[in-house]
């Protein structure tokens, strides 16, 4: 009985993993093929990898785009985690009726499609450009600033804080730790897995963010990776081998970050702290 159960669990996981990885596999194989072969759905590695690399480097500045995307994604992730966890913690630990109302209002902000906010937001950055051009239109900072705080992440931290053992805080207070100290010295170290999940999700959405960078960034030297890939595919006669290569390069950082952070998702991590 137990054996059977085990086999079926592995069976499900293996099949699901294969289904999940297949498009990834296709991407990598296609990066080594000619455009015509990609179109025909060839599933075997080809010999065109070096030509594709050469063509990619000759047509776009992928290095610059990777650097821009990295600066934006890392800055956003670090700042977003800090700001959102402070708020999520504040809303749950210092819960009051007034704060609950504020929280519900904040949730409203994630319910409107971004497309509806784009024009007013752009107008706002037009004004900002005149006062403080360093964070105005066509700067990397202008991509980061509106995405630092999202109700989504505050909500996530708040829901996780509901599961946080609050006795830890009381114990800290007894030992004379300040309120801010409790957050930094007890909450953050205890909630490592929550931070890890939030970091992965935030990095990923920042790395793949498309609409706002597209509108607010203008000069080629500020181009981000998704914009670069989109313009590669814009041709009447796109070179799919090169596009797939660019996509593989663009996907690797998030995949790697996940791979390294997922060690925090190990059952019983909390045990060592409790």
């Amino acid at each position: 009985m137990n054996k059977l159960k085990q086999i079926s669990v592995y069976g499900i996981l293996i099949v699901s993993s294969i289904i999940s990885i297949f498009p990834f596999f296709f991407m990598i194989v296609s990066a080594t093929n000619k455009s015509v072969d990609v179109s025909s759905g060839k599933l075997l590695p080809g010999t065109n990898l070096f030509t594709n690399i050469k063509n990619l480097l000759a047509t776009v500045e992928i290095g610059q785009a990777l650097l821009n995307s990295a600066i934006i994604a890392v800055t956003t992730t670090v700042l977003a985690l800090l700001v959102a966890s402070l708020a999520g913690y504040g809303f749950e630990i210092y819960r009051s009726r007034a704060k609950d109302i504020v929280f519900n209002i904040l949730l409203l902000s994630m319910m409107i499609p971004f497309a509806a906010l784009m024009v007013p937001l752009f107008r706002m950055f037009g004004t900002i450009s005149e006062i403080a051009p360093v964070i105005g239109i066509d700067t990397l900072a202008s991509v980061v600033i509106p995405t630092i705080t999202t109700a989504f992440l505050i909500f996530f931290f708040r829901q996780n804080t509901k599961m946080f053992p609050k006795e830890l805080l009381e114990a800290g207070r007894m030992d004379g730790v300040s309120e801010l100290g409790l957050f930094f010295r007890i909450y953050i170290p205890t909630m490592k897995t929550t931070y890890a999940a939030a970091a992965i999700i935030t990095f990923m959405s920042s790395w793949n963010n498309y609409l706002w960078p597209l509108v607010v960034l203008q000069s080629p030297k500020n181009q981000t990776i998704p914009l670069l890939i989109s313009s590669l595919g814009s041709s009447y006669s796109p070179d799919y081998g090169v596009i797939m290569l660019a996509i593989v390069i663009a996907t690797l950082p998030t995949a790697l970050i996940f791979f390294f952070l997922q060690k925090y998702f190990v059952a019983g991590m909390m045990g060592s702290i409790k």
């Binding site: 821009n68 670090v78 051009p133 360093v134 990397l140 500020n222």
Partner: peptide, 12 residues
């Protein structure tokens, strides 16, 4: 990072 982000704006 913030300086990096801003300074890249600066160089613009």
């Amino acid at each position: 990072l913030f300086i990096a982000a801003c300074s890249s704006g600066d160089s613009d």
